[in-house]
Amino acid sequence: MRVGVVVFPGSNCDRDALHAVELAGGEPVALWHEEPDLHGAQVVILPGGFAYGDYLRAGVLARFSPVMSAVRDHAARGGLVLGICNGFQVLAEAGLVPGALLRNASLRFEHRWVRLTVERTDTPFTRAVPPGMTLRLPVAHGEGNFFLPEDQLDALEARRGVVFRYAAPEGNPNGSARDIAGVIDARGTVCGLMPHPERAAEPLLGSADGLLLMRSLVGSGLASAAA
């Protein structure tokens, strides 16, 4: 099961993501931003970093790169796409998931461990997470403050679009509306989250909780390929 990890100029979590895919039993393949080709990947990860230097707004320039036209087509066909941190910002700018990521309320880059409740374990991105389990993952971002107007937040919640929420004891690191850490699109095949599962994919890194998300993704990719 081939999992593509997009490499933008300025991506800095691509190697970690490729490694985590391998740990989860997938076949990792790096996808260069200038090629509108997924090289047979059944699942695509947009990794963390500072794509195109985060110039103008985080994620916006990456959105118009050639690889993103292939990612958009993939998503339109119901293919799985996971955006992590900067990858979440790219998905939000591209309109593939709802919301915008504003500057952290603290006005600081927040780099620390957080706790997450998993609101849904019935998605392709979370199916390996035992129901009720709280995940411990790191965040590292300056713009992770999830924003939507109140009425759109209500609509997002009503369709169960919130997948991850920041939880006690560390709580909300960035001021996100309703403690939202990750969302899923209406179809349930494109997901973005600010915390980094790939940086917590083996005990040596302080937590292996992220591997559950990577395993979910690899397992779901297999299931969708078989269908």
Binding site: L56, R57, G99, A100, L102, F147, P149
Partner: peptide, 8 residues
């Protein structure tokens, strides 16, 4: 499409 994000 590019210079501004209409949401914010």
């Amino acid at each position: 499409e590019l210079f501004a994000n209409p949401l914010i």
